[in-house]
Amino acid sequence: MEIIAPTALICLSELKKRSSVGYILLPLLLTVCTIVGIMLPIQTIFQIKVGISLPIGAIVTKIGTFIVLALFALYFNLKFYKNIR
């Protein structure tokens, strides 16, 4: 969080200025979000196999939220790369 949050804020402010730094940071952040969304269900599966008990509510909210965020990030990342001239 100490790296992602400030980078996201810098990216947002640079995109508002239409600076090239914002356009460089945006796909990097979207890729990180997509990877986290892919890895979190895998991590949860391994936690359950090892015997770490997780309440079903925690599993659904944790995995569901990050999968939805990863799908949005993937969608916007693909859209970003298609619109590069």
Rank of each mutant, 00 (worst) to 15 (best):
M1H: 00
M1C: 00
E2K: 00
E2Q: 00
E2M: 01
I3T: 03
A5L: 01
A5K: 00
P6V: 02
P6G: 06
A8G: 14
I10E: 02
C11T: 11
C11I: 03
C11V: 01
C11M: 07
S13G: 11
E14K: 14
E14R: 13
L15N: 06
K16R: 01
K16H: 07
K16C: 05
K16N: 12
K16F: 04
K17Y: 03
K17V: 08
R18Y: 11
S19E: 11
S19D: 13
S19F: 02
V21R: 12
V21A: 11
G22P: 07
Y23M: 03
Y23W: 04
L28G: 14
L29P: 06
L29Q: 03
L30C: 06
L30G: 06
T31L: 13
T31S: 14
T31K: 02
V32P: 00
C33D: 10
C33Y: 04
T34P: 04
T34W: 11
I35F: 06
I35D: 01
G37E: 09
I38M: 12
M39C: 11
M39I: 14
L40V: 14
L40A: 04
P41L: 12
P41E: 12
I42W: 10
I42D: 00
Q43W: 10
T44H: 06
T44Y: 14
I45G: 03
I45F: 14
Q47Y: 15
K49F: 15
K49Q: 15
K49L: 15
K49Y: 15
V50N: 11
V50C: 04
I52F: 12
I52G: 02
I52Q: 09
I52Y: 11
L54G: 02
P55M: 08
P55T: 15
P55F: 12
I56T: 12
G57D: 15
I59Y: 08
I59C: 09
I59D: 13
V60I: 10
V60G: 05
V60T: 05
K62Y: 05
K62A: 15
I63E: 12
I63F: 10
I63D: 11
I63A: 02
G64D: 10
G64P: 05
G64R: 04
G64A: 05
G64N: 09
G64K: 08
F66P: 00
I67R: 01
I67A: 08
I67S: 04
L69K: 00
L69C: 06
L69P: 02
A70L: 13
A70M: 08
L71A: 12
F72K: 01
A73Q: 03
L74P: 02
Y75L: 14
Y75V: 09
F76P: 06
F76M: 07
F76H: 07
F76W: 08
L78K: 03
K79E: 13
K79A: 14
K79P: 04
F80V: 04
F80N: 08
Y81H: 11
Y81I: 15
K82G: 10
N83L: 09
N83D: 13
I84K: 15
I84G: 05
R85K: 15
R85V: 04
